[in-house]
Design a binder for these strands. Sequence first.
RNA 1: GGCGACGUGGCGAAGUGGGAACGCUGAGGUCUGCAAAACCUCCAUGAGUCGGUUCGAUUCCGACCGUCGCCUCCA
Length: 467
Amino acid sequence: MTPSDIRLHNTLSRSKEPLPTGPDGTVRMYVCGPTVYGPIHVGNARPFVLFSLLKRFLQHSGYRVVLASNLTDVNDKIYAAAAREGVPSAELAERYGREYVADTDRLGLGRPDVEPRVTDAIPEIVDMIARLVDRGLAYAAGGDVYFRVREFPGYGALSGRRLEEMLDTDPGPAKEHHLDFALWKGRKDGEDTFWDSPWGPGRPGWHIECSAMAHAALGTDFEIHGGGIDLVFPHHENEIAQSEGADGCRMAKLWVHNEMLELGGKMSKSDGNIVLLRDALAEWPAEVLVMFFLRSHYRSKLPYGHDALAESARAAERIRNTVRGLDRALAAPGDQLRPALARSVAEARAKFAEALADDFNTPGALAALFEAVAAVNAAVDGADRPSEGQLQSVRTELATMLDLLGLGALAAPPGDDVPADVAALVEARAAARAARDFAESDRLRDAIRDLGYEVRDTPDGQQVGPR
RNA sequence: GGCGACGUGGCGAAGUGGGAACGCUGAGGUCUGCAAAACCUCCAUGAGUCGGUUCGAUUCCGACCGUCGCCUCCA
């Protein structure tokens, strides 16, 4: 894939644009991570999955990718949660930051290259605020520092808003204009995490952290800035104002926003309609959750629910069955190259890559993958099996596609770690079948099932796997 | 009030100005001792509603209805 082949939807232009690249051909991405005042929910995982996989796809397409994704570890809700739990706010943020990393690790998609914390970026933040003050784009008022929105001409470009049309929802007595937002918040009673600054003790406002951390990690004019669509206004709008105001050049070339997960309306911590990621992962394997995300386009709303997850599990199972069938065929391959199979798989691969290149259309990519799956199943079905070399190369093709989608687990060998009690039943069942004692055979199959395993009879003998 | 997204078969979900992918479910069949898996066949003359543009629209334009998001913290 060359840059002009890969296209992504840019929120700024509301249209698909060719993938931008840096001077050295790299793609730098900054993605807004969560505020860590509690365990994250499944909705928080959507951007994590999206950008982890986008990074994979871009790397596979030959790009050097740097992915930075922050953790917000100072904020009002953290103070509040810490007060509720009776622990220092820094300790609480540190704990939930760790849990965020542990929870997302379980998705098996790797980590971003950089995961900056706000509390490690205070000097950069203070420095950026000072530059904004110097340039007349910010002013101190009563211990706070505010961004002077009217002085930034492009304000509203990302979210498509005009200053005059916006409601006066957040007046604030010290502000010159109701939309001016805090860069630095003076310390209030009970706030136990704070730093000194030229404007007095306090801590950063919500938006400035991302401007400063993105700048520190990726510089200016980086390629992609991402996050949930609920961050477009005010968060990303304000980031642009701060970064471009302070640096005098563009912050990011292209803005990618994922739509929301829904659970009777947008899944949101403040609304309380959430399912924790760890709870979802206790109920479903990681690859099923990834499949669930993949089955809809990242710019579509996605309702979360048991039925959708169960369906994702069955779809994943179809792929797993195909890989198993392939491995069974490899144990007793034929000696013919099957041109029809080769053609089908090659076509599917091309379609797969095209779909991902077209605004990361994962449902389209899955469709292509399933076409390959069907072709493989048909080819492996009969006695006239493809040659070992062809089976190997087809298996590699499938594994590559699965890996790109974060579904590598579906191509993993089933694992021989069947418990001894199950193995004993399987052995007994083999004996019963040899003796054509089918009543006993069926009884043993049920017993095996009760232990959580499933046995299938194939021409090559019994096959056992987790149910 | 302002801005924006979306409405496709029983369910989920893509692409597309001219044959409506793919997955799940369902029906029939093949294989199997029986299952399971897999394979074969079938399941939207119609795409929220109503208009318009066009030789032709699900795809473009408009109106209306409906769902949702942002405008306050938010992935």
